[in-house]
Design a protein around this nucleic acid. Structure first.
Lengths: 380, 380
DNA sequence: CATTCTAGTAAGGACTCTTGCCCAAATACG
DNA sequence: CGTATTTGGGCAAGAGTCCTTACTAGAATG
């Protein structure tokens, strides 16, 4: 609506951004290389590098080009610009890393958690890991990107408990937990959403800007990617499909999660799905197994019908502990391809996609933070 | 990822854009007013106005300021910059307008169509209306924005027929139909999507960036607004909910459109809903009416459960011929507020929202087209 | 050692935006 | 009616950014 006000300062900031982004794509470059890469003239690049070096964002590495011609100085991003914390929290444990603006991982800490250890223990594991990582890197932890195996409130970043859905990690506020260790923003999202982003970047949905990722594990979730971005909805609860109305046994309409309750596939006195029992059934051969399979296929079909109706994806990606059980995807595909609006189904291909997705975002976020550091504060 | 290359030309283009946008918000302004409004200095504005006047985009109106001080010259957008065609096509008729870059409507043409007139007749009505409007405006019709009462293919802009869903207007390719009369792009979308955009701009969902608009009329449709934008999905068919799996009579799972077939509420030998019969039943008092109402409420509830699960809206807007029947929304609300994830329901408030929505988009698009005319072609 | 090739620098020019000042023109007021 | 006030507009000077061209420095090649 209102275009930005033109100013010479803006041009300079743009030049600096070009230089910084080049050095984020390539760890070390001479000024001539930056010039060639950006299309900006050599003198202008020299100016910018000088400015950025004075500001401490860029350093002369001391290395020189070899080969014909005069030796050029390699520049790179200053070490000490800091790193981002990436962490994935599940009821089984916490995995944490530190990544720098180049995308290099500087260390990984894995902490296993006992079953039903609870959110306090998870929080402690997270802070400990963050402190350890903070010691390993030259600068500070400037931001954190967290993947959690529970629904996440979009405003606050807290994990939330939805009725009749499992609360796997439990009541946790990563932003508060990390307040002392991480200086900047803490971004939190659902593991399924991160997984979908990872598959979109480099997995089976690469370049597909509209797809749906269905996660079938202890919890039931899905990510909706529309116009290339995971859509989280007002509260961040888009894709929480436990209560989606679908077809249960005998063609009765019921909530998705209900189907598992009726089939006796929930963990005792819990709303989480009994994955071992379910995989056992999916592998079984008896009449009973056959019946359960067909009920599940129809129930999943109902969920997919909803996803197709509301999101019109180009494809559906299926992941999760039991979603990848052999035979399940073909069975669902066979059923779904006979419905009025079939859509291709694919199996998720990445391992630990939630960490991959969160890591990519952490790098992006850290990079844009550094770019903003170069520009003087936009008035105040 | 790759920031734009800085250049002085870019600054100038930005200044010009500031000037043009100012004159799009306010029909006439002096250079001093533009300067004050944009925060750009007077000499710079004078330069830009001179440039734009030479290019024929801006003209001195000849009017002068009155009041204290020296009289200033009022400038405005040049007439003859052209207009955009806005049209809404339904099986009942075609409504077409021409709007200019200031949002002024330059004429309206309404053509009634006989029932089942078919797409050829609608196409003729559209071209005739476009030709008439083209004669009434100073410049050319530079683009068109079309609302159609059928699903629209996102790639081609053609109306498409989905299985078991009514095809109200019928096979029509607005882009081809208008090729002779409109010089620029032809944007086509579903009437429900345009209505949702209108309610988002200025209706009951103003400022709500995540909501779902449920249209209950002859056809069943819905629009999903996420992060402030209507999400159309890969093929433009997001929101086509005829086959969404929901609860029918006796709690049986079935497609949404099936429910109406079972209840005998479809028009004879058609997949369109019999709206008169339905409104009659909704107003009725007998036991039969009661039963139908409760079935409908549950069926709609199932659809809303899907929308809430997948899109997490802040609110649900209900519109359409029978969606606004007295008593329906409260009944659905009473049912839905007892489900695990209730969301506020509201009635749509705008009249002919599809035209309003399309008009707003036409103005935006025409404005950005004019802005692009000011900038020299980005290399070629 | 001369040649060739490349990185970096210096000078000059073109362009844009801003500040400050002055002028022109119209109203307000004595 | 004449003067003060107020506002739009134009001009000049200055600072800043980027680009082109030409030149220098330095390293490998022959």
């Amino acid at each position: 609506m209102t275009p930005p006000k033109p100013s010479l300062e803006m041009l300079r900031a743009l030049t600096d951004e070009n230089v910084l982004r080049s050095l984020m794509d390539h760890p070390r470059l001479t000024r001539a290389e930056i010039s060639a890469r950006t299309g900006i003239s050599k003198p202008t690049i020299s100016d910018s590098v000088q400015r950025l070096a004075r500001a401490g964002l860029v350093v002369d590495t001391g290395e020189r080009t070899t080969g014909r011609g005069r030796a050029g100085s390699y520049y790179s991003l200053a070490p000490g610009l800091g790193a981002a914390l990436v962490a994935a929290i599940t009821p089984r444990g916490v995995v944490a890393e530190a990544v720098d603006a180049l995308g290099h991982v500087h260390g990984q800490v894995r902490t296993a958690l006992e079953a039903d250890a609870g959110p306090r223990v998870a929080a402690d594991a997270l802070t400990t890991a963050a402190r350890q990582l903070a010691g390993k890197i030259p600068g500070r932890l400037r931001l954190a990107v967290i993947s959690a195996a529970d629904p996440v409130d979009r405003e606050t970043g807290r994990l939330v408990h939805l009725p009749d859905a499992p609360f796997l990690v439990g009541d946790l506020d990563p932003s508060a937990v990390l307040a002392g260790t991480v200086t900047g923003p803490v971004l939190v999202d659902n593991d399924v959403n991160w997984a979908a982003r990872a598959e979109h970047r480099a997995g089976c949905a690469r370049g597909v800007d509209d797809f749906v990722y269905l996660h079938l594990g202890e919890g039931l979730g899905c990510a909706v990617v529309n116009d290339g971005v995971v859509r989280r909805g007002h509260g961040g609860l888009a894709g929480e499909i436990a209560h989606l109305c679908t077809a249960g046994p005998d063609g009765r309409a019921m909530a998705f999660t209900e189907v598992f309750a009726v089939l006796g596939l929930r963990r005792p006195s819990s709303t989480a799905i009994d994955v071992p029992a379910l995989t056992g059934l999916l592998a079984g051969r008896g009449e009973q197994a056959e019946r359960v399979r067909s009920v599940l296929v129809r129930a999943i079909g109902g969920v997919l019908a909803a996803a197709v109706s509301l999101a019109d994806p180009r494809m559906v990606v299926i992941g999760g502990e039991w979603g990848l059980c052999p035979g399940l995807i073909p069975a669902v595909d066979a059923y779904f391809s006979r419905t009025p609006r079939p859509v291709p189904l694919t199996a998720a291909v990445l391992s630990s996609p939630e960490l991959t997705g969160a890591r990519a975002r952490a790098v992006e976020e850290l990079q844009s933070l550094i770019v903003r550091m170069a520009a003087p504060a936009p008035e105040g």
